[in-house]
Write a protein that binds this DNA or RNA. Structure first.
Lengths: 218, 218, 218, 218
DNA sequence: AATGAATGAGAATTCATTCAT
DNA sequence: AATGAATGAATTCTCATTCAT
């Protein structure tokens, strides 16, 4: 009767339900998952789920919100100790890959199933994901401020590029059945992000660009 | 006896149904879209749809397959005339962005709704998308063969990075309500892809990497 | 494809469903009745009911509205031919009792089950029943105008008294399992309504009363 | 082990629960009322209710039984002092109206919500209501024995008529939101009951009737 | 006696798909 | 080939009731 989050409810049971939801969503997909599947795996009655979550959508959203919050906090802490812009950038990529590698079910839900809830995609993604994108943006900005990252491209676009690339790489890995070591992609990705596809030593051929419209919409 | 390939059927009606499906999926999302909505918009009876398509999923898959086929053909033709690797690469990016800009409903379906069909995500994406990814790969390979693109990073990873970045940029644009000119992002993106985030003139600090495991799974 | 009420729907099927609903509601009561019970009795699939009625409540309301409409029309026609106020009054009572006697299931639904739908009681009763009460009122008014019925008591109260008495008598008969001939109560009831409980020959002891507040609320 | 009769239980708590039930049933209706609503209003835990009452239906039935018992006792006492048949009859009507006026929540439950429990309507009404109807019958019989009330109409029918009329008048008043003074209807109702709708001075035109079948079923 | 978290039976409704016309 | 009325499987969520504490 003395837990932090829930008043009259059992925090452990809530956790069990949420973990079961991650596993079931990962295995069957959000729309194919039955609430009763989750209840069975959590070892509770169907109705019990509704003591802790408003409805099925709320399960998915809770997974997202709580996990993203944890991730954001953990990442920010870890990155703070890295002062070199390139090292900090590398650490971000490494943590992203390592994180998903460590929690493959969570990866599946966050990368794939989350997108199957229309409501989620339209209302939450842009709101909650912002924090993570902002984190990416801050790391890039840090490098720009130290004169090692280019500033002639809109920051909003850079964030999207990095996030999208990571997202796709992880999605592919998840959908392919996680056949290799995700973390080992850290260095190749960092190289590409930092140095580009162009052969080393060949200078930029394109100059700066127009306004950063993407900025406004993120 | 319904299948998408019979050619003794009225091709115009088939086209009308498919166009209606694109519009309805784009507006309401795959799961919220009713087959009867599509029928009404196409001006046919509900049952008629099943003379041309196996089921609701088949509509989505058909949109994907047929549109991707068109896109692949058109892109390959257009790219063939560009011999300079960098120009060819730029053209690919430009066409990708211009294409989605020209068909926003199609963009919505391909970028967002497609992902709401579990079956699709798990069975089709990796199969059908391959052509497009291969196209990206070929363009990159062409640059590598001409010694202007780096070869010390797995090609599979490069393809994913490029595709994922484009995907995210287009998704953001779609979900944000298409508030700006997508094509104008061509040059910033090309710059980032080719030169990377690192400040021009700073050479690579990381060396080559291990084997290309991603290759095998794509 | 050419029926009056329903456009693309089958009127006979609608009738069958409504009749089945009357029977099932009468037997099991509104809240105990399952939509699937009604479907089975009507010989249709569960879903078919929803092609003809919005929901379960709509079934009950439709029974009420359509039957009350029929009753009102039939009663008004029949009463028009009776010019003597007492005969007309007697005919109203007789038809009320005979009507329920002829359709005992309908009586059960209208008298008992209808009252179990909160929504109905609160929204419909006062609206739709008004016609019937008005009919009673008109018959009484006719007698007052001809100087044979007393006018020193609010008409609204008279209507309620007569309706309530009939309602209770029929309800008792329904709930008791319809053990006797309902119509035979016509004359005793008419006597009581017209002459009162007081022994014949004894004049009124009470005079006229205050304002007719009931009038305003009916 | 729950039953309404145990007297080692806290009588005050039982009373609080019953009062809460009256209030909640009156406000939301029987089927819309949640047991937890009643528990909250009574200031007890949900489970506690089941220490005092068998189930939700039992709450309703207990309200009915206990209130009817009180009413019956009180009414019999009050009527005993009236020896004149007409005065006694008038007093019955007056008390009925005054009683409901004084306890509007109780009126709502007894008049309207009680009818929404199928079980109640079918099993209890005829049993428990009998006492009240008998009381009405005794008052009428008293008048018959003194030669002031007519005996040529079945007593069972008279009881029903009076009860039904009162019931309807009170129901209307409750459903209309209690907009006027119910007690003021005493005299008009007594006039109608005793003298009938027919103009004073006009003698009966209908003779006596057959047996009293209604009697047997009450 | 009291609690209130947990239970799980139960049912209305939707909608993709079929098939008689 | 086209229709669209009919189908019925399938699933979320509610809430009266229980029982371990």
């Amino acid at each position: 009767m003395a837990n932090g989050r829930t008043n009259h409810k059992n925090a452990d049971k809530r956790r069990r339900i949420l973990d079961a939801a991650v596993a079931v969503f990962a295995e069957k997909g959000f729309y194919q998952a039955r609430v009763s599947d989750i209840a069975r795996m959590a070892g509770v009655a169907d109705g019990t789920i509704y003591l802790y979550f408003k409805n099925k959508d709320d399960l998915l959203i809770s997974i997202f919100e709580e996990k993203m919050k944890e991730i954001n906090v953990k990442f920010r802490e870890a990155l703070a100790s890295e002062t070199d812009p390139r090292s900090r950038f590398r650490k971000l990529i490494a943590m992203h890959l390592a994180g998903f590698q460590a929690y493959p079910d969570l990866a599946a839900v966050l990368q794939v199933e989350l997108r199957q809830s229309s409501r989620f995609m339209r209302e939450y993604k842009k709101v909650e994901l912002k924090n993570y994108l902002d984190l990416v943006g801050e790391v890039v900005r840090h490098g720009q401020d130290h004169g090692v990252f280019r500033s002639d491209v809109p920051l909003g676009l850079i964030k999207r590029l990095i996030f999208g690339a990571l997202d796709e790489v992880v999605s592919t890995w998840v959908l392919a059945g996680r056949p290799y070591d995700l973390e080992s992609l850290t260095d190749p990705l960092v190289t590409l992000f930092l140095n580009g596809l162009g052969k080393p030593g060949v200078a930029d051929q394109k100059g700066a660009f127009g306004e950063d419209h993407t900025q406004a919409t993120l």
